[in-house]
Amino acid sequence: MCLAVPMRVIEINGNKAVVESRGVETLVDITLYPDLDLDDMVLIHAGFVIEKLDPGAARDIEEAWSEYEKAIES
């Protein structure tokens, strides 16, 4: 289950943060992941930050699939 969307932290205020994605801003609760900095990418589910995203891991995985594709092609 569970819709969750990646958004960027643009403001932190106590246990709340303003997050943004595609020009949409919304206020979320960061009780479940308080250790955040501005510009962090986070995963939002039902008004809560449930996890911080790791853009490096995303790049690594894409790189691996790019290699995979090249290996099959050749």
Binding site: P6, L32, Y33, I50, L53, D54, A57, A58, I61
Partner: peptide
């Protein structure tokens, strides 16, 4: 892996 760590949150 961009959103899932071994030990989660």
């Amino acid at each position: 892996a961009r959103a899932v760590r071994p030990g989660g949150n």
